[in-house]
């Protein structure tokens, strides 16, 4: 990927407010052709608002958005043909079959019937072509929504929480389809999610949003290494730990106590060095562990370290 070429999606200093909520606050984003980017954040972080502004569904109060150098005010028709999208919770017509639903949307783009057959194959719904929408499972409905977004062979795909509420198998099926699109068609994609493993599996870059602002962006490796917090110790104590003295923490290391005051989330550079000192310190002060877990850091930990909250909250 050539990082110096003109980005296919450019978002510059975009703001959006609803009544007294400042949903998006000065977001900048540049996405290259063929790149898969995840917008990660908890509910209310501003992910959907940002994506809907890129989709042209909402207008920004301030700032610029361009897709392939085009903007929504002047190039609406062209942008409709460049972008494919899947909204959160769209419910299609219950008593139309999968094929009829795809035919309807393909007629809006004036596409030949053969395109519907191709898309049915692409989203693995050929067997369900005659089934009514009302009889589809959650995963099949999401694949239909994805199929509709792929009808016009979009260069840019914008998916808003495409796997929310799906079981792991259905989620994995959708991931495989999306991964295939990347290799086969060099599609560019923005995906909003609050599943870190989804962002990790599918996307080249991750943008973490919270309260309308970008907290961090980059590859997973970059995000983790930039924060210099490689490892996590989760522990529980037999008594409130407000008087517990732990071994000194480095510059980027920190401890986050949970609400019960008896368990904590400790972010450290190196477990091998830190853990023996922690065990010794806890024992010396008359505490003992009720639980202890050591692991590598994940996006969720990174989010907690930045906001003090979990992604799913």
């Amino acid at each position: 990927m050539n990082s110096t070429s003109t980005p296919i999606i450019e978002v510059h200093q975009v703001h959006k407010s609803f009544k007294d909520v400042h949903a998006v606050q000065g977001v900048d984003l540049a996405i290259q052709k063929g790149e898969y980017v995840a917008l990660l954040g908890p509910n209310g972080a501003g992910k959907t608002t940002l994506v809907e502004m890129i989709e042209g569904i909402q207008q920004p109060d301030a700032g610029d958005i361009k897709v392939k150098g085009l903007n929504w005010k002047q190039h609406q028709d062209q942008l409709h043909r460049v972008i494919g999208l899947s909204l959160q919770e769209t419910r299609f017509i219950d008593k139309l079959s999968v094929r009829e639903t795809l035919h309807l949307f393909s007629s809006f783009y004036k596409l030949p019937k053969s395109r519907v057959r191709e898309v049915l194959e692409l989203v693995r719904l050929k067997e369900k072509a005659k089934a009514f929408v009302v009889n589809l499972s959650g995963g099949q409905r999401q694949r239909l929504a994805l199929g509709i977004s792929l009808l016009n062979q979009p260069e840019v795909l914008l998916l808003d929480e495409p796997t929310t509420g799906l079981d792991p198998t259905a989620r994995r099926e959708l991931w495989e389809i999306l991964a295939h699109l990347k290799t086969a068609y060099q599609t560019t994609m923005i995906l909003t999610t609050h599943y870190m493993e989804e962002a990790d599996y599918l996307c080249d870059r991750i943008v973490i949003l919270d309260q309308g602002k970008v907290l961090a962006k980059g590859t997973l490796q970059k995000l983790l290494s930039e924060n210099n917090l490689g490892e996590v110790i989760d522990f529980g104590l037999n008594a409130p730990g407000n008087h517990l003295e732990i071994p000194p923490l480095g510059d980027h290391e920190k401890i986050l106590w949970k609400e019960d005051g008896m368990s904590a989330h400790l972010l450290v550079n190196d477990i091998v060095t830190y853990l023996p000192e922690l065990l010794e310190s806890v024992k010396r002060q008359g505490y003992h562990f009720t639980s202890l877990e050591c692991r590598k850091m994940t996006l969720d930990d990174l989010f907690i370290s930045m906001t003090g909250r979990r992604l799913g909250q």
Partner: peptide, 13 residues
């Protein structure tokens, strides 16, 4: 209410 209108007008319909 099903957000279908929103989806339909996100096409050249």
């Amino acid at each position: 209410s099903k957000k279908l209108l929103r989806r339909m007008v996100a096409t050249p319909m």
